[in-house]
Amino acid sequence: MDTTTGFPHRHLLGIEGLSPADITWLLDRADGYVDQNRRRDKRTALLRGRTVMNLFFEASTRTSASFELAAKRLGADTINMPVAASSVKKGESLIDTATTLNAMHPDALIIRHPDAGAAHLLSQKVQAHVINAGDGAHEHPTQALLDALTLRRRLGRIAELDVAICGDVAHSRVARSNILLLQAMGAYVRVVAPPTLLPAAIERMGVEVFHDMKAGIAGADVVMILRLQLERMHGSFVPSTREYFHFFGLHDVALAAAKSDVVIMHPGPMNRGTEIDSGIADDTNRSVILDQVELGVAVRMAVLDALLGETELEMEAAP
């Protein structure tokens, strides 16, 4: 295998397993696609003749659109399979669908699924490259990559940044992927949440834990607000959204504790007034939320390039 160029992985199942060099390679490649996406003609022929399937077992607007655009701009044929998790029994349909789709010779399968490990399972059953677009509360690697690209372009580096991830870490795949990526690239990560929204032993992932919003964001370079995933709340994790916003939302009172030039991020979709104040979200001096969306397409192009682009030939030639 050629180790000087390219990306030595068959699938992108998570940030776990990626080296800093892999991450840097993807971010560098994505930087180039940012420029391409701002041109009048956004399309290249890199993946002409390749088929990319979007397999979403969970509702998604931005991520599926972002992947679809990314594939189209690289010249691939794309197809969206919105597999509603409610209409078929979970899991059974995953294997059945995978086997069926595999017979159609897709080159890449992009999967989002409510169960952690679904992308791993799929990757064992198909010949196509598998890209994890979010599996349960496990990982969402392209989100972490686009967050990293946003930070690198805005602040010039990731190493030694002080990043506070705030909110529903327990149910968040975005949080896990970001913790892994930011730490791999040398950043310092804290998490800020009520104890009920933190998973067990989260400190074992090397993060500093705060239960106080002001203390948690004081001195941070970046504040990453997570969506309060109301649809996943099976029990009473927080007493009310009102109380949550008061103590753990990002509003002017909390923000006063942060550095004046703090960068504010949110993976979307936002619950305005629940985890983030509307005015703060729209303050383009500090909020990079729309940059995240823009760079998401570039990052996904880089991932498709990494797995399906010219480097694939070298990978397949390897024994």
């Binding site: 952690a116 490990g117 349960g136 509360a137 496990h138 896990r176 067990a200 032993a201 074992r204 992932m205």
Partner: peptide
């Protein structure tokens, strides 16, 4: 525990 947290389970 840590393993369930890392696996997102």
């Amino acid at each position: 525990g840590e393993v369930s947290t890392r696996l997102g389970l």
